[in-house]
Structures are given as structure tokens and as C-alpha cells.
Design a protein around this nucleic acid. Structure first.
Lengths: 222, 222
DNA sequence: ACTCACAAACTGACTAAATCACTTAGCCAC
DNA sequence: GTGGCTAAGTGATTTAGTCAGTTTGTGAGT
């Protein structure tokens, strides 16, 4: 069962990106030129590009060009075609985070660098500004994972949280306890700063447990 | 910036799958029929289907049809367009697993059901049969995560390990210590059976640490 | 010299109508 | 029955073109 033409094409296009040293944001050759280069037609090229688009490896900008996407080097990614969200799926997500994140926090307390502490502080304070601020790229829990020094852990957390974006508003609507969140986040940062792994782990666990309880108490959402 | 036609199409196709109650393995309407139904042309339909294919939501079988894929309900998935593997990336992966898996093992020791123990035992014994056996679908570490009762944790581990498949042969070639692996796996299962979370956690940690050391000692691969 | 408007010249988005390649199921001969 | 052939349905790909945005450079007007 030989790989299909469009399969080989995706690999070739990735080869162009890697061999060309292209980084996220850089433009790749136009669909017409790729078609010419590989001696195939544009619909076939577009199929291959769509596959790459689905995984965030490339991005289309109508009229402008095709660009290298932000997650091209990711190992694990959030499913862009997510199933609909239910209260159960939210609780499942929090349960998974309850297993993973405390261990991550402990590791981050050990491995954190001064740069990580800066970003963590920024994430904590940014969360206080009312929504609409542009600096929402910094997510506290993702930055906490980043402080572990392992990009893979950051990817895993980012993927888990990306799925949550859609219902984040719903949770906020039901249980907007920004002040408490802020306090707990700050306490975790302090533990990480002090390189107190045990405390960071335990604070993260109770923080997530608080969120879990809040969601559990909330009514089923639409 | 309105979503492109093929974006809306993917959503519509997912709608057909979900509304039709289709499950992985079931056939979906042919590209020609979808084109007719949405009053568009087949290349456009194919672009949408390719996007769904990239995330494992659908599968093509030339000459036969298009079928619902196994990972359509996944929240997080392994990047099918993985970057090339280096020794560093392998160590990074093991480090991430060293953070996540012990915590997962502890949770599994608490939550495991009789059914999980069966599958774990099967995974342990299957690993002993020489490669070529068909029952390689059971991966010990994935089953260990499954025993936690949280499908999301299973997804995360499966995604992390899927990436590793490509270099699994390389690791095996450098450090084929199947007997030791088997012993350590068996010890973890015993701890999980006894619902001894602390021991399961610690055994998992040392097991992964052994693998890490073996990889570290290995020469750089091609 | 500066700025604004506008017109190419690029780009992606999509259409239309075929042809080729593969799989499956049914039929028929043996 | 069983084997092989055939026909219908499917995905894979081509060809040739139109539509719709974006970027860039040019030139008129100030």
C-alpha cells in the first residue's frame, strides 16, 4: 500500500520548509509554484496543504500567501475538530489536569529559571486585567509547565488548555472567582520561586481541586 | 475574516457523522455525494476531507470509500507530521514521561478496575513475544494510563508514545533489555493490583529512569 | 518632496468536466 | 460450492479556467 501522492507531497513540502530553514511566520512557495515544481496540479497541492493546515504546520492567508504555522514543530497538539463540550468532558479534563499538573509544578519548582519566574509573574498579573487585553497569550498554567524546562510538557498543557478555551467563558460566567484564582496562582509562584517542590505540588493540587468543585457545583451547560 | 468554505465543510461533515451516530469504522457518504449534497465540487470536498484525515477523524480507502477514523473523538493527538527525531528529542520525551507517568501510575493504582488489570497483564506478556505478533496494539504504558479511568490521560500517553514508534526500533537495537522491562512492568502491575499508589509511582519512576539512562548512554543516532 | 489613488500582478478559493486506478459484489461458468 | 470475470461504485488526479482578496509600485495631484 504505497503512500498516496498527496501524502508524499506533504512530506516534500515539510522538507522544503525544514531544508529552507523556514520558521513560523515565514512564507512558503505559492500553490501554483509548488504545483509547477512537483509537476502536478494545484488541487493536489491544495489537498496536501490542507492536511498541513489541519495540524497547524501551515496557515493560509487569502490573497497574500501560505505561511509556516506556529505549531509545526509540535509533537502533540489539540484536536482542531473537537467534539462538543459537556459538563462531564470538562470534569474529565480537570481530573486529568489534577493528575498531571501537580507533578509538573513540582518539576518546575526544581528547574525554574529566572526568566520563567518573570513570565509567571506576568501571567499572574495579566489575569487580573479585564478581558479584552491583548496579552492573553500568557496562560498561567502553560507558563507553569514551561518553567519545567521541558517544551514537551508545555505542549501537553497547552493542548489540554486549548480545548478548554471554548468553555472558558462558560466557566467564567458560572464561577468568576478571579480574586481567588489570583491568590492561589500567586501562592504557587511563590513556592516555585522558593524551589519548594512539595509545596508547589500541593498548592497546584488544591487549586485545581477548587476549580473542580466549582464546576461540579455548576448546573449542566447547554 | 469569514471561515473558508472548506472550513465550514469540515464542520458540516463532522455534523453528518455525529448526527448520524456514526462510529469509528463506519462509512461516510462518498465524496461525489457530499459534493452533490452541498452543491459544491469534489476538489473542495476533498480538501475538507483531507483536513479531517490529517487529524484522524476520517480515513480514506482507495476504491472502497471514506470511513470514520479511530481518533475522531480525541481531544489531544500526536502530530502526524513529526519533526525528525534526535537523541535530544528522545531524552526530552523520556523526561516528560518521567514527570507525568509516575503520577498517572499512582492514580491508576487507586482507580484500576478488574478489567484494567486483565489488559495490563496481557500487555506485559504480549511484550515478550517476538515482534511480528499482531497483538502489538496493547502498549503497557498506554494501558497503565487507561487504568486511571480517565480517557484523557490515556490519550495523552498514547499521543506521546505514538511519536516514539519511529525510534522504538532504534532504542530496541541499542538497548534490547526485554527481560528487564518485563520484570519492571510486572512489578508495576503488582503494585497497581495491590492498589499501592506510592509503590506504583516509585516503580514507574525508576523504570523510566532506567530507560533514560540507557538512552543517555547510547551513541547519537543518525 | 510627499501623499494618496489606482492599477497591475501576485496570491489563495473554487468551479467544471473528465479520466485513471482500485475495490467490491454479483454473476456465470466450471 | 469455487474460481474467475465483469460491472458499478469509489477515491486519485488532471486540465483549464474564473473569482476574490492582498500587495506593490507607479503616477497624478498637492
Amino acid at each position: 500500500m504505497p503512500p498516496s501522492l498527496s501524502d508524499r507531497l506533504t512530506e516534500s513540502i515539510l522538507g522544503i520548509i525544514r531544508d529552507g530553514g523556514l520558521r513560523p511566520g515565514d512564507a512558503i512557495p505559492s500553490a501554483r509554484e509548488l504545483a509547477k515544481r512537483f509537476a502536478i496540479t494545484t488541487p493536489t497541492v491544495r489537498e496536501a496543504l490542507r492536511k498541513l493546515e489541519a495540524t497547524g504546520a501551515v496557515e493560509f492567508r487569502h490573497g497574500s500567501g501560505t505561511y509556516v504555522g506556529p505549531t509545526i514543530n509540535n509533537v502533540v497538539l489539540a484536536n482542531p475538530h473537537r467534539p462538543p463540550i459537556t459538563k462531564d468532558s470538562v470534569l474529565q479534563l480537570i481530573s486529568a489536569r489534577l493528575v498531571i499538573e501537580p507533578a509538573v509544578a513540582a518539576q518546575s519548582a526544581v528547574s525554574r529559571q529566572p526568566e520563567n519566574l518573570e513570565r509567571l509573574e506576568a501571567a499572574v498579573t495579566n489575569a487580573l486585567v479585564p478581558p479584552g487585553g491583548p496579552a492573553f497569550a500568557l496562560n498561567f498554567h502553560v507558563e507553569l509547565a514551561a518553567a519545567s524546562g521541558n517544551p514537551l510538557l508545555q505542549e501537553v498543557l497547552a493542548s489540554l488548555l486549548k480545548v478548554r478555551v471554548r468553555e472558558q467563558q462558560q466557566i467564567r460566567a458560572l464561577y468568576d472567582n478571579r480574586a481567588r484564582d489570583h491568590e492561589e496562582h500567586q501562592a504557587i509562584v511563590d513556592a516555585v520561586r522558593a524551589q519548594d517542590a512539595v509545596r508547589a505540588e500541593q498548592l497546584t493540587r488544591s487549586h485545581l481541586d477548587n476549580i473542580r468543585q466549582a464546576v461540579e457545583a455548576a448546573p449542566e451547560f447547554s
